[in-house]
Design a protein around this nucleic acid. Structure first.
Length: 500
RNA sequence: GGCGGAGUAGCCAAGUGGGAAGGCCGAGGUCUGCAAAACCUCUACGAGUGGGUUCGACUCCCACCUCCGCCUCCA
């Protein structure tokens, strides 16, 4: 099944093929945060969606080159640093650091580059110079440079807006009367006293870049004039992405982006998230309430990116239950397969580069679970669940459909475990499928080594239980609990999970 | 006013012109020293409303209702 994505530009599902003649490299540009504050969960919905996209493309064998920008100069960052009386770089550093910490918490894979706007001012100036030479950029009375929209009739095609019918919005700045056309957007903003010491020299005098030009400059500098996929929130479609197209294509003469993908907004408890409504949450707010990164990730990732996501505490709670169920299932399989080492270890680097068949035979040789031919026969069904999971994601990242296959696998194998009909080989293969799926979902619990003291207590408890010394057994369970672990007796033996 | 998205069980949410996935919650049961987990069974005779096309519509068409987004620097 070919991978298909919904392209905002065409408003249709399109088969995905990268520009790379070898069909392998994918150039992905994703709009990143403006580092004037801690990012909120709405922001992270977009980043988690982009992470899912990247991981799925990688699972399908693509080599994804992703760039995510950091907007570290704009009205809000300038305002923020001026209020605190610190330098811009100092102000934004705090939020850049927080951002990286947050994406780590949410297990979002690092992009290849995280270019900061302030490091690419020279490239932006160069682009603006080219536009000026072509008669597309002009300097207005206020010394700022604007993009002459009349030179780019394509403007509005991504958003499907007819410019002639545009009703002037309430947010049109009254101080932009110098522009030739109300829609012309700023490429370069001339310095004024509100900018303090935030300014760069340019052929047009001191100032700072407009917002849109940074993405055009950084995308072009790092990925070249033609990008395969460009992502962002729907609110970026207009005007930001339109402006990017206009700037980039006027400079390079090439089609800037081949597939545009935008995620819908997030609501909180059915309401638009806003500080005034009291339902505005940063990632840190949720962590403080006791939710974990993977729970939040799950809640954000499990609704198709094109649908508005209603983020609720019920939803987080459901995420927690679902994850615990997957954890229990994983542990059960591990015990059954006789693999006593952490899952991260036995499915680590060696297996990462293997296709399913290679990985399967590796596992078989390593753990000698059953003979090969016997295994093939009774594991095809299990492997099929994994295939269906990825096939679902091929359909515009249909995560709901994909998850249904995971949970069907969970139920099927649990049932077989209960019935005593699951073979060691099937358990290993189920683990393998689980791990392939997790390479997309990134939902494994944090690996914690079981302290020797806990293990010793559990062993003592097993002895007590064998002798039917129930009081002693319960005492030992409490002792284990005091060390932060929960012990559960299963058919497969005692199972330890960290107490959250 | 223009453009676009969405209405499926208590909540979240898929696929599909002919048997309405899956998750969470809930009820009953099996297992278990206890606990927990797991498993089994049950939980929408109906898909915002009203029409139409069709042998047959949740799915296609029309109208209406409701919600949401964008319309010049919010993911």
């Amino acid at each position: 099944m070919p991978t298909r994505f919904f392209n905002t530009y065409s408003r249709e599902l399109e088969e995905f093929h990268p520009l790379d003649p070898a069909g392998k490299r994918v150039k992905l540009y994703t709009c990143g945060p403006t580092v004037y504050n801690f990012a909120h969960i709405g922001n992270f919905r977009a980043y988690v969606f982009e992470d899912l996209l990247q991981r799925h493309l990688e699972a399908r064998g693509f080599d994804v080159e992703r760039v995510m920008n950091l907007t570290d100069v704009d009205d809000k960052t300038i305002k923020g640093c001026r209020q605190l009386g610190v330098r811009l770089a100092e102000f934004t550093k705090k939020f850049k650091d927080a951002f990286f910490e947050d994406i780590g918490t949410l297990r979002i894979k690092r992009a290849k580059d995280f270019p900061a706007a302030t490091d690419y001012v020279a490239q932006m100036i160069e682009m603006i110079r080219v536009l000026e030479k072509k008669g597309i950029a002009y300097q207005a009375e206020d010394k700022s440079l604007y993009f002459r929209l009349s030179k780019f009739p394509e403007y509005g095609k991504l958003a499907h807006l007819n410019l002639d019918e545009l009703r002037p919005g309430v947010r049109v700045q009254s101080d932009e009367y110098e522009k030739e056309n109300i829609g012309d957007f700023a490429l370069w903003k001339a310095w004024d006293e509100n900018d303090g010491d935030v300014k760069w020299d340019s052929p047009w005098g001191p100032g700072r870049p407009g917002w849109h030009i940074e993405c055009s400059a950084m995308a072009t500098a790092l990925l070249g004039p033609e990008i395969d996929i460009h992502c962002g929130g729907v609110d970026n479609i207009f005007p930001h992405h339109e402006a990017e197209i206009a700037q980039s294509e006027c400079v390079t003469g090439k089609k800037f982006v081949r597939y545009w993908m935008h995620c819908a907004h997030l609501m909180v408890e059915g309401q638009k998230m806003s500080k005034s409504a009291g339902n505005f949450y940063t990632l840190r707010d949720l962590l403080e309430k006791g939710w974990t990164g993977r729970e939040i990730r799950y809640a954000l990732i499990t609704v198709n990116y094109r649908l508005p996501l209603n983020f609720t505490f019920d939803g987080l709670s459901a995420a927690r239950s679902a994850l615990q169920r997957i954890d229990e299932w994983t542990e059960r399989l591990k015990l059954h397969a006789g693999l006593q080492i952490p899952i991260s270890e036995y499915f680590s680097t060696t297996l990462a580069g293997m296709n399913p068949k290679e990985a399967t035979s590796y596992l078989l040789s390593k753990y000698k679970v059953v003979s090969g031919s016997e295994l093939r026969k009774d594991t095809d069904g299990i492997l099929a669940y994994g295939e269906r999971f990825f096939d679902a994601l091929d359909d515009d990242l249909n995560i709901s459909g994909a998850l249904s296959h995971l949970f069907n696998l969970v139920r099927e194998t649990n049932r077989a475990l209960d019935a005593g009909t699951l073979t060691d080989g099937q358990a290993v293969i189920a683990l393998h499928v689980r791990n392939q799926i997790d390479s997309i979902l990134g939902l494994s619990p944090d690996i914690r080594n079981i302290p020797a003291a806990v293990l010793a207590l559990v062993e003592q408890r097993q002895v007590a239980r064998a002798n039917k010394q129930w009081a002693e057994s319960d005492r030992l369970r409490d002792a284990v609990a005091e060390l932060g672990w929960v012990v559960k007796d299963t058919k497969e033996g005692p199972k330890l999970t960290p107490k959250d």
